[in-house]
Amino acid sequence: MKRREFIGLVVGAAQAWPLAALAQSRMHRVALLTLEADEEISQFTGPLRDLGYVEGKNLNLEHRSAEGEPRRLAGLAEELVQTKPDVLVAGWGTLAPKALKAATATIPIVFATVGDPIGAGLVQNLARPGGNLTGLAASPRTSKASSSNCC
């Protein structure tokens, strides 16, 4: 291949790259489970919007709340799993992540602010959570891998 052909190929690929990226954009399906109805989902959607994920444009957000009734979480978790989201997000605390963990072992689950994810039985350890769960620990156990971020 001659130098000019090579440069033309590289320039052409560089110009086509944004078009290819645009064509590959798709609707991302996220399901959110919370215990309380008044939990601020804007704490969740705001940062996603900052990253370019806009509900209705490239983000489909399904939200279910147990409205303060923990016994409803299991049914709502099953309902969200049936929507086949790309990722499940568990609201603040331990109960929502536990319900989602019981509902699926294949869809990735991200939990927010669980005090002790090891003690709650959500992860095996902080360095290597195992399974399909990951997230943030509010007060992780003291260990070699201990930090304010979990998993």
Rank of each mutant, 00 (worst) to 15 (best):
I107T: 15
C151H: 00
V54D: 13
N125D: 15
C150P: 01
V30M: 12
T134L: 15
T106F: 10
V114C: 11
G119N: 07
L22H: 04
L22S: 13
L35I: 04
P117K: 06
L48C: 10
K2C: 05
D50S: 14
R4F: 12
L35N: 02
L33F: 01
G135P: 02
L19K: 04
P47V: 11
L73T: 01
I7D: 03
A120P: 02
G68P: 00
L51W: 12
I109C: 12
L19T: 07
A77I: 06
T45D: 06
E62T: 12
L73A: 08
T83H: 08
F44T: 08
R141G: 06
A20T: 03
L133Y: 05
E79G: 01
P70C: 09
G8P: 00
E62R: 04
E36A: 14
P18T: 03
A16H: 01
R71N: 13
V11T: 14
A137G: 11
P117M: 11
P129I: 05
A112D: 10
C150Y: 13
L35S: 02
T83V: 15
T94W: 11
E78K: 09
L48P: 00
N58R: 02
V123K: 09
L48V: 09
A102W: 10
E39D: 11
L88W: 09
E55N: 04
S147L: 05
T134Q: 11
R141D: 03
K2Q: 07
A14E: 02
G131I: 05
L19P: 00
A120T: 04
P47T: 08
E62I: 10
E69C: 04
Y53K: 06
N132H: 06
E55F: 07
P117D: 08
I118K: 09
P85D: 11
S42I: 11
A127D: 07
T113P: 01
S147Y: 05
P117C: 14
T94N: 14
R29D: 11
N149H: 14
S25C: 06
F44S: 00
E69A: 15
K57C: 12
D50W: 10
A37H: 11
L122H: 03
T104F: 11
R26A: 13
L136H: 03
L136W: 10
A77H: 10
S143Q: 04
A138W: 06
L73D: 08
T94I: 13
S148R: 05
A96W: 09
T34R: 03
K57V: 15
T142Q: 13
K84I: 13
L35K: 01
A16F: 12
A127N: 10
A37P: 01
D38F: 07
I107H: 09
K101T: 03
L122T: 01
T142V: 14
N60H: 14
A112Y: 15
E55S: 09
A96C: 04
V11G: 06
G119C: 07
S147R: 01
L73M: 07
K98G: 14
T94P: 02
A96M: 06
G131P: 03
E40M: 05
G135V: 02
G93Y: 09
R49Y: 09
